[in-house]
Nucleic acid binder design. Structure first.
Lengths: 352, 352
DNA sequence: AGTAGCTCCCAAAACGTTTTGGAAAAATCA
DNA sequence: TGATTTTTCCAAAACGTTTTGGGAGCTACT
């Protein structure tokens, strides 16, 4: 591979001139520039990104750092987001480095490596837990980052994040089924070791409170890990005396809802919005949600908006014009400086 | 951020010694090493990946380079693969750079940049077209790469690739519906500007030929771009006299099949494997395929195997032990040196 | 004619590592 | 004891850019 010296020699100028010609500086004669450009083209010369980074202290790369653990629920959404993010990076002339790990042990080591080694200029941190040591890690290292999601203590820590308002989404869903006349509302969730599970559950409790419905522990199952547990849970719920059985099942995400619907269907229980049927709702609006039978009523995560906001915020922080960060998404609620909440959108289909 | 000099000064040794201590060389006293390690820890020192790359000529990064254009069909599968790839990279201690572009103009410029600038050690090229100028580009630049998919002229060009045998998948599907007694088999496909469309269509023709069925132009529609066209196509097919209507519809991918099923259902036409119903098949086995009603009969792309093979092959090429490249996937067919074909798996469900 | 101001170019330093080729000090051997 | 080997360390070069701080050679002004 040719380097800048090869070009300089061939053109009969110094490497300084080659560099400045290629970078569009005005202190090089137009004729010389043309000549250098042609030679660079001929030689198939491309400046080394690595050398450039070393000198310029900029890599023009950001990392997307999720936890690639194999939850029943987590992987689908990760897949949705990375493509959109990659596309969005083009606008900022950034490259996207995907950096995750599956065993939680390694994770922090991988993240520390990518954050500490100067390989990237900024990081988008995903899959935030209620208490997430990665926030402190990155803050410590001093690398610009934006979290996708938020911890429980985001107010004290006050790091930048974009989150989707899970509580609001669930509240809308609950209100919707409440207005159908349903009162016994079960809530199914994965374990509370992911922030969004906690916030969504809070939404459920807030709604019950608002409508004056007492919490019924038997209707709340919040540690679902595997498919088999779901089936089991459902049959337990439906072995209750008729007057105590749930009239609606609020699932904390689409994948869970999918399994709930399948379990119910298998048991011969009708799912749907009509009276006599049991209502089921999800959250996320993954691609399959529209194609379920019955099609899933859910709250849509605004993926495009979220990714745009994440990049916008991160770019602003990296560009040091932190002062005037202003997220342009219309439905963004500002929780604190550089902390934004995006609203999910209610999607009514057939399952509720 | 501290650098190696800071550590050296604090430890009272030269930077050489720090470097060698950190990299586990044996010519540094165990006591000194311990001291250096502790100081590095205290200082929160991490070697600059950039400087290291510059010196070592290795970035330990590979790029995933798809075409992120917004086809009716292409995006879902891209999303599937990037997550698995990212996970697989961990085993090889590689990072994954996602580098795509949406307008086809930019694409080559982006690719040239990432390939020519030494930012990555290797590239996984996806979304191969029947004639794909990117192959020549990368060969020219001389960067190690593996294509996911293959051009029409892969034999002359002879570059490394992993492909999924689309023809074989379609053949199995066609044979399956043929054995149900169906003879009038329509074929629906997106435009032939993507390799897999061509190979899959070939599979269809080979099967017809094998079973002595004449090709019926009216049953072959191969330029579907939008949803609306699909509905239109379907109604045209079903406005034929009864004796000429298709008994099965072979769609070249799941997304297409999904829309076909929806269109048919809207028109009140029963889809399924039973006599009197029309059979519909897809290809890919995307996550939603199992949840359609009727659930989609399709050919599953072995994503995990494919990603594993891509990485295995690329790693071998990058490691210069090209000679003994041996793909370990059990169902891999070798087409040429470093050229492998993986077999899709028939997934029988309800739609056919 | 002298000087100030352009235009166009360049040598050298800096970015932070690893590698190379020793060299001093300590240990071992004869 | 002197010679040899081993252990432990280091100075300098190299990787390929960009930036800094000028410096010729012209042109234009007074």
């Amino acid at each position: 591979m040719p380097n800048i010296f090869d070009v300089a020699k061939r053109a009969g100028v110094s490497i300084t001139t080659v560099s400045r010609a290629l970078n569009g500086y005005s202190d090089v004669n137009e004729k010389t520039r043309k000549r250098i450009l042609k030679i660079a083209e001929e030689l198939n010369y491309y400046p080394s990104a690595v050398a450039r980074s070393l000198q310029g202290k900029k890599t023009n790369t950001i990392a997307f750092a999720p936890w690639l653990r194999d939850h029943i629920e987590s992987r689908s959404f990760f897949k949705e987001i990375v493509g959109v993010l990659a596309l969005g990076c083009l606008k900022y002339d950034l490259s996207l480095l995907v950096s995750g790990a599956d065993s939680s042990q390694e994770t922090n080591e991988t993240l520390r490596e990518v954050a500490g080694s100067g390989r990237v200029d900024g990081i988008i941190l995903a899959d935030i837990k209620p208490e997430d040591e990665r926030i402190a890690l990155l803050t410590d290292i001093g690398i610009p980052f934006v979290a996708f999601g938020r911890t429980s203590d985001y107010q004290e820590l006050s790091y930048p994040f974009i989150d989707i308002d899970g509580a609001a989404g669930i509240r809308e869903l609950v209100e919707y089924v409440y207005n159908q006349g349903r009162r016994r509302l079960a809530y199914l969730s994965g374990p509370f070791n992911t922030s969004y599970s906690v916030y969504r559950f809070n939404g459920y409790r807030e709604s019950l409170n608002k409508f004056g419905i007492a919490e019924e522990p038997r209707l709340i199952v919040a540690d679902l890990q595997e498919q088999s547990q779901i089936k089991e849970t459902i049959s337990k719920l439906f072995s209750l005396p008729e007057s105590q059985r749930p009239e609606a099942i609020i699932a904390s995400n689409d994948t869970l809802a999918l399994n709930v619907i399948n379990s119910l269907t298998e048991m011969g229980i009708q799912v749907g919005s009509k009276a006599g049927q049991i209502a089921v709702t999800g959250f996320d609006d993954l691609p399959f949600a529209a194609f379920l039978r019955p099609a899933l009523t859910t709250a849509r995560q605004p993926i495009e908006d979220t990714c745009a906001a994440l990049l916008e915020l991160l770019a602003a922080i990296m560009g040091q014009n932190e002062a005037k960060v202003k997220i342009s998404q219309t439905n963004a609620l500002m929780l604190g400086p550089k902390q934004y909440l995006l609203k999910p959108e209610l999607v009514i289909r057939e399952s509720a």
